[in-house]
Simulated assay, not measured.
Amino acid sequence: MDFTPPAGLEGWEKWGSDEPYEDMAGPFFYQRTPQGVVSAFKVEPKHLNGGNAIHGGMLMTFADYALFTIALDELTDTHAVTIALNGEFTAAGPSMGFVYASGEVVRETGSMIFVRGTINADDARTGPTLLNFSGIVKKLKKRS
Rank of each mutant, 00 (worst) to 15 (best):
R32L: 13
K14T: 15
Y65S: 06
F28N: 06
G87C: 01
G11K: 08
K139Q: 10
T109G: 07
K141E: 08
G51R: 10
K138D: 08
L85C: 02
L67P: 02
F89W: 00
M60L: 03
F89S: 00
Q31E: 11
P34A: 12
L48H: 06
F68S: 13
A124C: 08
H47F: 09
T78D: 06
Q35A: 15
E74D: 14
E88Y: 00
G127T: 02
I119R: 00
F98R: 02
W15G: 11
K42Y: 09
K141W: 06
E44F: 00
M1C: 13
P128T: 15
R125T: 15
A53S: 10
S134F: 02
V37K: 02
M1Q: 10
T33P: 07
W12F: 14
P34G: 03
K46W: 01
M58C: 07
A40P: 03
M58L: 05
D77G: 11
V137W: 00
G117T: 09
G97T: 04
E22W: 15
P27K: 12
M1V: 13
D2F: 07
L48K: 04
F28L: 07
A66L: 06
Y30K: 05
S134L: 10
V38A: 08
T109A: 10
T33W: 08
A40D: 06
V81Y: 08
Q31N: 12
I119C: 04
P20T: 14
L85S: 05
S95C: 09
G110K: 10
I136M: 05
P20W: 13
G87W: 01
G51N: 11
S39E: 02
K141P: 06
H47W: 03
T129R: 14
I119H: 01
L85F: 04
I83W: 03
N132M: 07
F28G: 04
E44R: 04
P20A: 12
S102L: 04
I54D: 03
G51C: 07
P27S: 12
G11Q: 05
R32I: 09
M24L: 13
E22V: 13
P27Y: 06
L75R: 02
M60R: 00
P94C: 06
A71W: 04
E10I: 13
Y21M: 15
A66R: 00
L67C: 01
K141R: 09
F89N: 00
F89L: 00
A121E: 01
S39M: 03
A7R: 12
T69Q: 06
K141C: 04
F41I: 05
R116N: 12
V99F: 00
R125L: 11
G57E: 04
F29S: 08
P128Q: 14
R125M: 13
S134P: 03
D123C: 11
V137S: 04
T129S: 14
M96D: 15
W15Y: 14
G36D: 05
N120M: 03
V38G: 06
V43H: 02
N49A: 06
S144A: 05
S39T: 06
A124T: 08
D18C: 12
A91C: 05
T76Q: 14
D73N: 12
S144H: 01
D18K: 12
Y30N: 08
T126R: 09
S95P: 15
L48Y: 08
K139N: 07
D23T: 14
R107E: 09
E108G: 07
G87R: 03
M112E: 09
Q31A: 11
I83H: 05
H79G: 10
